[in-house]
């Protein structure tokens, strides 16, 4: 069972802040609109609580999974409510439920996930590679529980780094979660000197 000190959670929050800042800049270039990020939260929670704080378990949303492989195994998950996905897709005149809309959301996942992970990899000197993103439209609880369980079958606690991105001029926001698998986090904390 993994627990983290306040110092470690602060360090993870700072990493998330830098990573999501880079991701927001990349999304802003893609959409041609300024993108704001919230101050990220970092918390270690029981799996059931991690799902509960993300939102209503049966709320339908678009889930974009970007698996991270290499020295550091993790998942980047974007949760986008349907109205917000509609706003994003409107930029290019797409329907989020069409094939083109899904591939546009996949591309957003790709850009956000890649820029976030590249920053982490550079700062920690670890090898991290994003795998091709997958997009589903489903119940929030089902998406998140499936991702959390697939990461680490032995963990009782999940570490979730959460940032919210807001696109200016388009009333839309999305949650951006980084969910590391078990041992990788301690390796990462060691590299930045807060093991």
């Amino acid at each position: 069972m993994s627990t983290y000190t306040e110092t470690q959670l602060d360090a993870l929050r700072e990493l998330a802040n830098i990573g999501s800042g880079q991701a927001a800049a990349a999304l802003s270039t893609m959409l041609g609109h300024p993108v704001d990020i919230s101050v990220p939260t970092a918390a270690a929670m029981e799996l059931a609580d991690a799902v509960a704080v993300a939102g209503e378990a049966d709320a339908s949303c678009h889930g974009i999974l970007v698996p991270i492989v290499g020295d550091f195994e993790a998942a980047v998950v974007l949760l986008v409510p349907d109205d917000d996905a509609q706003q994003l897709c409107d930029v290019y005149g797409l329907d989020p439920h069409s094939e083109d809309g899904a591939s546009f959301l996949q591309e957003i996942g790709n850009i956000l996930g890649t820029s976030y992970i590249n920053v982490l990899a550079e700062m920690c000197g670890m090898d991290m590679e994003p795998a091709p993103p997958q997009v589903v439209y489903d119940m929030l609880g089902a998406i998140l529980a499936s991702v959390l369980l697939a990461r680490d079958e032995t963990a009782d606690m999940a570490l979730v780094l959460d940032s919210a991105l807001t696109v200016e001029g388009r009333p839309c926001s999305l949650s951006f979660l980084l969910i590391p698998a078990g041992g990788g986090v301690h390796e990462l904390l060691g590299r930045i000197g807060v093991a």
Binding site: V51, A57, D58, D138, M139, L140, G141, A142, I143, L144, A145, S146, L149, A150
Partner: peptide, 17 residues
């Protein structure tokens, strides 16, 4: 476990569970 009439047991958002 539910025994009281009118109770509804539920699992919300089952994915791989």
């Amino acid at each position: 476990i539910g025994t009281e009439p009118g109770t509804v047991l539920c699992c919300i958002g089952l994915g791989s569970c």
